[in-house]
Amino acid sequence: MAVYTMKRITVGMISLFVLVTVTFFLTRMMPGSPFEDGNVSASVTEAMEEEYGLRDSPVKQYRTYMTNLLKGRLGVSYKQQGVTVESIIGNAAPVTASLGAAAVITAAVAGTGLGVWRAVSKKKTVRILLSGGTLLGAGIPNFVAALLLLLVFGVTLKWFPVTGLFTPAHYVLPVLSLSFYPTAVVAEMIYNTFAEEMKKEYVVLARAKGMGFWQIAVFHVLKNAWIPVLNYLGPLSAFLLTGSFAVESIFNIPGLGREFVSSVMNRDYTLIMGLTIFMGSVVIGVNLFTDLLCAWLDPRVRNSYLEKRWGD
């Protein structure tokens, strides 16, 4: 496991380096200048570019940026004068993280419940309704769900507030918007794996020993059925914890997603780079944690790592 962990960390570092490099040169290929404004003359724009080193060659700018990055400095925002990229991320990340964590928990709990209900229900009508609901949920993009929820429950019925994240009530609509699709996916995965696990020999043996149905389902079957779900929740958590651009923009939530959209529109190179590095690091870290957690929970995964190690 130690060898595997080191390999994954190395691959993650290389992936992050490639991501930073590609993003850096793509930002320099964007048309226009971060300091272009209808009220600013061309001479002032050139002077600002000279001040921030944007008149240098892209290769020289890249070397300067990577040197500062290795020193732990992400730079200052070009549009928010005097504000560091670190402070912008520090203010936006907790907002997005709280929203993403709530959506992940909602999807995991609701999806597991719906999947088990569909698997154990003996009523055909219930199974058909749950199956149809799963297909419907998986087919609705989060921005469409956000608009529908906003119009129905926010504007028409006025049950929930529609902007910001100030109270628990503000979380309801954006969390539901983000969790529609993952809930449907988790429900389908749990249904398939739960039904398959219930047919295995260890379940028959547990029943022969006199264990109750729900005892077997909760303490044995569900544990194994959740392994594929964990593999899915890893990338999902990374995505939701780093921001959903559309949902944050629709509900005017001051999170990472809105900051990233704003930075691209304003050609704020340093903020684009800082957000990319932060989001890339979170994605790599969460995926690594998920893989190690799956290996800890499932002996078969640990054994496969050992076989690969000895095979090397």
Rank of each mutant, 00 (worst) to 15 (best):
G212D: 07
G311T: 07
N231G: 15
A47Y: 02
G280S: 12
I105A: 14
F17R: 00
I227L: 15
W310N: 11
V126S: 12
Y65L: 06
L165Y: 03
N303Y: 14
G113M: 12
E188C: 07
S87A: 13
K209Q: 14
P228Y: 03
K60T: 14
F143W: 01
F35R: 04
F213C: 00
A92Q: 09
G75R: 03
M189I: 15
N303C: 03
Y305R: 12
E49K: 03
F35N: 03
V83H: 09
T242S: 15
G32K: 12
V76W: 01
R63L: 15
L147F: 11
I105Y: 08
K7A: 06
Q80Y: 08
R300H: 12
S33G: 07
V104E: 00
G115N: 11
L241I: 06
F160C: 00
I88F: 06
A102M: 14
V152Q: 03
S33C: 06
R118H: 06
A195S: 15
G12H: 13
H220W: 04
P174F: 09
L230A: 02
K79D: 08
A110V: 15
L26N: 06
L69Y: 05
D298R: 04
M6W: 10
R73C: 00
K79C: 01
Y202H: 10
L19P: 15
Y78G: 01
T183E: 09
P168I: 05
R267T: 09
M66L: 13
L151Y: 11
V247R: 05
A187R: 12
T183L: 07
T112A: 06
P182K: 06
V155M: 05
H220T: 04
P254V: 08
L173F: 12
T270V: 05
V144E: 01
V104C: 05
S281K: 01
N142S: 14
L241F: 14
N287G: 12
R300K: 14
E49L: 02
V59Q: 08
F25Q: 13
C294D: 03
L136S: 08
G12T: 14
A145R: 00
S43C: 02
V104D: 02
S98R: 15
A102R: 09
P161I: 00
M29V: 10
E36F: 06
A208I: 03
Y232A: 06
T67N: 11
L99D: 04
Y305T: 07
V120P: 07
V247N: 08
G285S: 12
V221A: 02
T27E: 00
T290W: 04
N252A: 09
V152M: 09
E196K: 13
G113W: 04
K209S: 12
A225R: 07
T112Q: 00
P141H: 05
S98V: 11
M13T: 11
G115D: 10
G12R: 12
L256Q: 06
V172M: 01
Y202D: 06
V59T: 13
M29C: 13
L293H: 03
E49R: 04
L16C: 10
S15C: 13
E46H: 00
R8K: 14
M1H: 07
F17C: 12
K209I: 09
G257A: 12
F213V: 14
K124I: 12
E196R: 14
V261F: 05
R207V: 02
